[in-house]
Write a protein that binds this DNA or RNA. Structure first.
Length: 263
DNA sequence: CCCGTGCCCTGGCGGC
DNA sequence: TGCCGCCAGGGCACGG
């Protein structure tokens, strides 16, 4: 599933191929993907930049922003215009010499289209600090962790820190030697500092790997993350210390941790 | 306000 | 071999 590093990679690859080309037409096969705005307002415009915030892609056109969240399985493909529309392709942007196709097996992804002044009407507005884009002030965010909720749940809350998903949160807490069940109000300032440090480290390393996994030799932009080769605890059976990994559920999410290493 | 639950979706997999 | 039911989970709506 695309997480922050994969979204970052998609952004970088798309920037190389779709900028400054006129959108001739748009086909909407599954309209529910769009939950705000009129995607047809992008016709005759060009994508002039692409940014990322958290797990969101922000496409900038001449007069609009298209905000896109891939959720679990969303992907963008670049294909020849002549190729038939395949199953799970829901939105098609047609340019002169190719098409950009939004593909999403489970239809969980969402898009919002707004005028330039209205970015604050999109979910972007509710995001907290981005560990890659922003300089995080630990003392500023520390009070938001003073809650009777598991630290894992708080780290997945995109309005505090954005971009961390279920896989990376397990890895970050493992590296920080913190039990994901510990309540936010038991986390000390220096522990949060360590968590943030490891978050930045893990995400940066994964972005590097993401860059290697783009299949640029095809016309498609399916991103296959190779971060799974680096995972230390998520989906693992045994810890590097030899202890059996505990599999449990926190906030409805599958959770992996080592009860010996993480306290 | 806080927090837990269920929903959206489909493919993959285990069990029979 | 096939079918059924469950599971995966990001974000949001809803309700106690």
């Amino acid at each position: 599933m695309p997480e922050l590093p994969e979204v970052e990679t998609v952004k970088n690859v798309l920037k190389k191929s779709i900028l400054n080309k006129k959108i001739n037409s748009i086909e909407i096969i599954y309209p529910k993907i769009i939950d705000l705005g009129d995607i047809n307002s992008l016709i005759n415009e060009e994508f002039i930049n692409i940014n990322r915030r958290g797990k969101f892609l922000i496409f900038e056109t001449n007069n609009h922003y298209l905000v896109s969240h891939l959720r679990m399985e969303g992907k963008y493909f670049i294909k020849d215009n002549n190729l038939p529309i395949e199953k799970h392709e829901h939105i098609i942007f047609r340019f002169n010499d190719f098409s950009l196709r939004y593909h999403d097996t489970r239809k969980f992804g969402r898009m919002e289209i707004v005028n330039k002044n209205d970015l604050n009407k999109t979910p972007i507005n509710n995001l907290g600090v981005d560990p890659i884009i922003d300089k995080i002030n630990i003392k500023e965010i520390y009070p938001k962790f003073n809650k009777k909720m598991p630290i894992k749940t708080l780290l997945l809350d995109q309005s505090i820190i954005c971009g961390i998903g279920n896989i990376y949160v397990d890895e970050v807490l493992f590296l920080s030697k913190i039990d994901p069940n510990r309540l936010g109000n038991t986390i000390k300032l220096n522990e949060l500092e360590l968590i943030v440090k490891n978050t930045i480290k893990v995400l940066k390393e994964s972005i590097k790997l993401g860059g290697c996994t783009i299949r640029s030799y095809t016309s498609s932009l399916g991103v296959i993350g190779h971060y799974q080769d680096k995972l230390l605890v998520h989906t693992k059976e045994y810890c590097t210390c030899g202890n059996k990994i505990t599999k449990t559920r926190i906030n409805g999410r599958g959770t992996y941790y080592c009860s010996k290493c993480q306290l």
